[in-house]
Structure formats: structure tokens, C-alpha cells
Design a protein around this nucleic acid. Sequence first.
DNA 1: TCCTACGATAGACAGAGTCCAAGTCAAGAA
DNA 2: TTCTTGACTTGGACTCTGTCTATCGTAGGA
Lengths: 136, 136
Amino acid sequence: MSDLLERLRGRGWRMTAQRRVVAEVLDGDHVHLTADEVHARAAARLPEISRATVYNTLGELVSLGEVIEVATDGRAKRYDPNAHRPHQHLVCSGCGTVRDVHPHGDPLADLPDAERFGFTVSQAEVTYRGLCPACA
Amino acid sequence: MSDLLERLRGRGWRMTAQRRVVAEVLDGDHVHLTADEVHARAAARLPEISRATVYNTLGELVSLGEVIEVATDGRAKRYDPNAHRPHQHLVCSGCGTVRDVHPHGDPLADLPDAERFGFTVSQAEVTYRGLCPACA
DNA sequence: TCCTACGATAGACAGAGTCCAAGTCAAGAA
DNA sequence: TTCTTGACTTGGACTCTGTCTATCGTAGGA
């Protein structure tokens, strides 16, 4: 995680307690927190941190490419710090749990030109849905 | 579309003017309207229809499997009446336009057992992103 | 140590969707 | 045809997620 903080400082980020705490909350594998969850965990360490700051910081991390924004349902977006290894998501329809998964094959290659309608297609996101062991 | 109305009646749906209008608005290919757009178009034919009724009716159509709910971004869900032929979606990052597409291959088959973490995986949704000819 | 521009804050605001109590009406029964 | 009833509709309040703005605070350079 200090890696991330170092990279951010290298990019000219002013380092504040709030930004540090948000970055620390997002540390780890298989982390897919909503903005509200990030705020709750950040506030446990730094009680006066505001929602607006959490949203601002998450937005900056996303635009710097350090965090991925995932919309697994129509509800709140989730934030995934595993931005440096391509992957897809497996979502439990019961409890909403999200796991990173690595399918083989390239979904982009499966879309024939005739099905692109003149679009410049740059990305394919796959969301697998099912029930996790606890919900099955 | 009268097909749909017949199927719904066959399932014990009470046929009201509101439900008929919502079903009619969703007729056609490559239709991906938000709830608000459905409401606006329905209200053009039946001015007093309420938002709650549109949401209720869309929810029922989805749970009957006659309409698919698509969350292409973190904003409003879209409703796709093309529920009886499997397909994926191609979304323009510029203007938000959505097209139905039919890639070959089965994304479900690309997810090895070792990457399923004990989940019962039943569905794979692919969202292709890029720029449409008008936005490129 | 002092300055100042960048960052944080609280709270108002907006969009999407849900919920509820009260009124309405489709469709089967008489 | 008329009656009855429970399913359907309505409007408005409410929740949740996210954005914006004016003001205050402070990290880091001079």
C-alpha cells in the first residue's frame, strides 16, 4: 500500500490524513467496497472525514487508474483497488459479494466486425452471476 | 406486441390501460429505455399515468422474464424487451447509446472451475464499450 | 515562520428508485 | 346488467447515492 502512496506522491498528490486513510482502506485483495463502506471504515480511523472527501478521493484514484469503478447492480458503485491486473467479476445474486476472476479467452475477440455497427470497441466487461456457497 | 399482451393475460395479469401502454412503449428492436423515458412516452398516450405504476409494471415484466433490466452505467437502469434471444450489449461511452450484439462463443465456458470459488454460476453478462460512429 | 493554493468540510441539492395510505376499477359472480 | 372485491393506480413522502458550493483549514514551498 505504501507503494500506492508513493506513486501518488510521485504524481504530485498533496498527502493528507484523509487521502492516506482512504488509500489504506482500499488495500488488499478482493476488496470491492461501496463509497459508503469506504466512508464508514475511513471514519473509524479518522472520525471527522466527510463524505464529499471520500467521493473526491475515490474519483481521483479512479481517474489516476489506481482504482476501478465497478457497477455490479443498479445500486451503489463499488471500488476495486486491483487495477493493475486485468480481471472480471463474479457476483452473488443473493448477498452481493463480489470476487475477482480470471477467465481465459478474450471476449473482445468474440465480437465479429459485423456486430460492431461501426463502433470503435475498446473494452469488454464480463459480469458472472450466480450463488455463492453461503447463499446456494 | 399483442403476443406479449396475450401471454400476460394468460398468466393472470389484470389488463389495465396503464399496463397496456407500458407494454406498447417497450415494443420494438434495440429499445433500451430508462424508467423515466418509459414514463415520458407512456404519459404522451395516457397523461395521468404515475411514475410508481411505471416502476411497478417494469418490475413485474422483469420478474416474468419478459423484459431484461440492464445497468450499463451507474446511472438509471435500462429496460430491454428483447428477452427471448440471448444477446449482449454494446454501449457508447460518449452518448450512452446501447445496441444489442451477438458475439460468438460462450463466456460462461471461459470461466474455469478453479475460478468459480464454489459459486453456482448461472449467467455471464458482457458489456462492450467504445465509441459509436457519431461520437468517434 | 509565513503564505497561499490546494484540499476538506457541512450542508444543500439532484436523480433514481421505493413505499404507503387512500382511491379506483377490471373482471368474475349473481 | 349490476354488484363486489381484491388487485391496481395514484401522489407524495421518503431513502439512497452522488454532486456541488461556499467557507475553512493546512501541506509544503519560500
